[in-house]
């Protein structure tokens, strides 16, 4: 099949037709840059901390954040990358090698923070201890500690925004997970800008890839020659998300546009959800132990740390 715009061979079929390599790259970049503009994800005075792992999403968002800044005369010295090393054997060390090379090639400063140094244990060591008393899945432990360190180190670096590589698939999955679990409070925090808009304890998280399908991100990274190797987290299949992901991919194959439909419906409802959850969503406290953002007196990261100390 030829490209919708020219006679070259297509590399992907998107909603409005098939696209060749050149037209796909243009389409993808314009979509991301338009998202940044439409939702005002990046401001002229922002200090940007890009949450990175070395995977396709984070390398793509890092690259396009830099491109956006260059295009809009925003100093690229305001961009830094932050990676969290969870300590998952045979997994994270591989993606960090790709990330270090990418940051070096693109002259972006990179900071790597590890669970082990910060919290005393790797995820591999911590998860069985925490699971014993709580039945928590590794993804629950990982998510809490990752968000904790991300906010802490972004703040330390003076960042005013945290940029994440969440794509349309990630977001559609979380929307469905929140529906399945009737978690309207969490749903109210979602969207291209997540988190609390104004809080001295919490740095706003923004998602330039919000409208990009995971397939599009992988293709973009491949066509741009980003060095991304496929590695699989050994815990990934244990989480609830994995089942939702498979379900949505199955639906997408049968009913094209399913994921986009979920996002569009959610964004139409989001103002109502936020209105309904007002008061609960805006309430953000400071952990009495570590001083980080918390939704109760002691944050979940500290609660988990205590479980480890008590064995």
């Amino acid at each position: 099949m030829d490209c919708f715009h020219c006679s070259k061979s297509a590399v992907i079929e998107v909603q409005h037709g098939a696209l060749c390599k050149t037209h796909f790259i243009n389409y993808f970049e314009e979509k991301v840059l338009k998202t940044i503009n439409k939702y005002r994800l990046i401001g002229r005075k922002d200090i940007l901390c890009v949450a990175t792992s070395g995977g396709k999403d984070s390398l793509t968002v890092l690259y396009l954040t830099k491109k956006y800044c260059e295009r809009n005369n925003i100093p690229t010295k305001n961009i830094r990358a932050l990676a969290i090393d969870e300590g998952i054997a045979e997994y994270r060390e591989k993606t960090i090698i790709d990330l270090q090379k990418f940051c070096s090639d693109h002259q972006i400063p990179l900071e790597i923070v590890s669970f082990e140094t910060e919290l005393g244990k790797t995820l591999d060591q911590a998860y069985p201890i925490i699971n014993k008393g709580t039945q928590k899945k590794p993804c629950n432990v990982c998510g809490v500690w990752r968000r904790y360190l991300l906010n802490k180190y972004a703040a330390k670096s003076g960042a005013t925004k945290v940029i994440t590589g969440h794509n349309l698939d990630d977001e559609a999955q979380v929307i469905m997970m929140n529906i399945f679990k009737a978690n309207t409070q969490l749903a109210g925090r979602m969207g291209p800008i997540s988190g609390i808009e104004e809080s001295e304890h919490f740095i706003q998280r923004v998602k330039p890839l919000y409208f990009c399908l995971e397939k599009e991100v992988r293709l973009y990274a491949l066509l741009k020659g980003f060095q991304v190797q496929f590695t699989e987290c050994p815990y990934s299949k244990e989480g609830f998300r994995h089942h939702v992901q498979e379900m949505l991919n199955d639906f997408e194959q049968k009913y094209k546009g399913t994921k986009q439909g979920i996002i569009n419906s959610f964004l139409a409802l989001l103002p109502n959800i936020r209105e309904q959850e007002k008061g609960r969503i805006d309430e953000i406290k400071q952990c009495s132990r570590c001083g980080e953002a918390a939704n109760k007196e002691v944050c979940n990261a500290c609660v988990m740390k205590e479980m480890i100390i008590n064995g």
Partner: peptide
Amino acid sequence: INPEVFLVVRNNEVIIGDE
């Protein structure tokens, strides 16, 4: 294989389903 979760490459070129 679900075509939504894989890209297909032949001779270093990404191709789509009707090839």
